[in-house]
């Protein structure tokens, strides 16, 4: 009995000593929380990334999906996770919008951005404006003219209020000085069904989802929100080309809870950098037709600040949404 106590005391002391010196990281599985359901953009880009990181670290990197409330549930769980580097998250642009919306409604925030340390930007996918072919608009110019002639008559749809297909539409409507009504849906699939069925005139669709329908002439693409044309839609201009200074990306990036040690952060940054450069990761992202847009922590921080400024002014302009009555 006493012997075992002595031994365990020694073991604990030894462990404490090594931890003090420089704990190797990672020595056990690193959980990547994805605050969205399996099969979504965050999930599909996090999985190949985790697989590539696994090879570098020689440690399992399991994905844990914690969906709910548009990502707020999972992000909150990571914000209060132990900052030991064994819980990180891969999340989407909603990271920036959720606290803004919470603040506007004056409700207790699910999390604050100060609770996280940005590790790296992984991918950024600009949406594309697609219209139902029955809408007599072949270009953004036509659409703006049409909407000016028929204010508040044309209806656009989106996958959820203040979400990544609502905000870019609001930015466009504001920049063009037009008025359109909106038809909220729940999720990308149902939104696409509403537009394909002609129940709504248009939406800001993820390109991968829209390309097959554009090829089949069931949808017409007018412009995309990127700073250069999409590889999958080389004939579709950007908003910048047609005279609107708009940029919007549905991005995904990795974060760790604030408080992680500097050694852990640098290990994470280095591993993500290598993983993003790996051939396997590139092939996987090509398959899901999502452009890689790697930025390391410092540039990612700048990107986030710029993104936030733009999103927060868009959300404040939108204000609390009045229902059409």
């Amino acid at each position: 009995m006493r012997l075992s106590t002595t031994i365990s005391a020694c073991v604990i002391a030894f462990a404490a000593l090594t931890a003090f010196a420089q704990e190797p990281y990672p020595t056990r599985p690193v959980n990547v929380v994805v605050p969205f359901p399996p099969g979504g953009m965050a999930d599909l880009s996090a999985r190949p990334l985790a697989a590539a990181m696994e090879k570098i670290w020689k440690q399992p990197v399991p994905i844990i999906n914690r969906p709910g409330a548009g990502g707020a549930v999972g992000m909150q769980s990571v914000s209060i996770a132990k900052p030991d580097g064994y819980t990180v998250m891969v999340t989407l642009v909603s990271y920036n919008t959720i606290p803004e919306v919470d603040a506007m409604f004056g409700r207790a925030p699910a999390y604050s951005r100060e609770q996280f340390v940005p590790i790296a930007l992984i991918a950024a996918d600009p949406p594309v404006l697609v219209v139902h072919p029955s809408l007599p608009a072949k270009s953004v110019k036509d659409l703006v003219a049409l909407a000016k002639k028929r204010p508040n008559e044309i209806v656009f749809s989106h996958s959820g209020v203040y979400g990544p297909s609502h905000v870019p539409m609001e930015m466009f409507v504001h920049a063009a000085g037009i008025k359109m009504r909106h038809l909220p849906a729940v999720g990308g699939g149902p939104t696409m069904a509403l537009v394909l069925g002609g129940h709504a005139g248009m939406w800001a669709s993820p390109p991968a989802m829209a390309v097959p329908h554009i090829a089949n002439t069931k949808l017409r693409a007018l412009a995309s929100w990127g700073d250069k044309r999409l590889a999958s839609l080389p004939d579709v201009p950007t908003f910048k080309e047609v005279g609107y200074d708009l940029e919007f990306y549905v991005w995904s990036g990795m974060f760790a809870p604030r408080g992680v040690g500097t050694a852990v952060v640098s290990s994470l940054r280095e591993t993500v950098r290598q993983a993003v450069l790996s051939v396997d990761f590139k092939t996987s992202m090509e398959r899901i037709k999502t452009p890689i847009a790697y930025l390391d922590a410092l540039e990612f921080q700048k990107f986030l600040e710029k993104d936030l400024k733009m999103l927060s002014s868009a959300i404040r302009r939108m204000g609390k949404i009045e229902e059409a009555k």
Partner: peptide, 9 residues
């Protein structure tokens, strides 16, 4: 989709 196939019409 992860196999590079876009389901569609």
């Amino acid at each position: 989709m992860v196999h590079g196939i876009s389901p569609g019409p």
